[in-house]
Design a protein around this nucleic acid. Sequence first.
DNA 1: GCGACAG
DNA 2: ATCTTGTCGC
Length: 204
Amino acid sequence: MTRYTDAVKLQEKLAPIVITKDKLNKIQTVCGVDVSYKNNDAYAAAVIIDAKTLEVIKQVRKKIKVKTPYVPGLMMLRESKPALSAIKSLKQDFDLLLVDGNGRLHPRKCGLACYLGIILDKPTIGIAKSLLGGKISGSSVILYDEILGGIIEKKGKKIFVSVGHKISLKTALKITGSLVKEGQWLPEPLRLADRLSKDRTEIS
DNA sequence: GCGACAG
DNA sequence: ATCTTGTCGC
């Protein structure tokens, strides 16, 4: 029994637990999380912004050792620990989580965003910058005869939005769109977390 | 068997 | 994701 097989079974077990309906209160703060790599180190960044002004409220950076390689469909094995570490380091609550990776738009309908959403029990949205699977039909992505993702295009580039947890695809698309600043491609929480995760300054 | 494949 | 120079475009 490999680690990969266990991960696949976990995804199959969690997929039915994902809540795809709106179970959220007023969204005042949004947290974005992203991870970048350098050698065997993961640099995770989490940023909380005000959903209305898009101004940063709090941000944190975390350096973690990682051995697990990236395997398509099993990104949770490589990124969940660093991501959770950064989010916990914030020591501050938020209303919605934006993850750099897919939610239900995944071979087993359980991408990294679903995993983190369930673990944290938070409304969560998955945002992927490229397609992992599925067919594009208009502004939707269809996988297994089911619409599992939506598309938002800015600056000629697309982002693939899907449900992470406790939110509907419709609401996820609406909120994600409202978080994209004029002239930008990615929603603010992720654009900032992405930039911060690439900061290689020594972490004290 | 072959190709595709979030970050 | 990361490796990498110059180069095209606003």
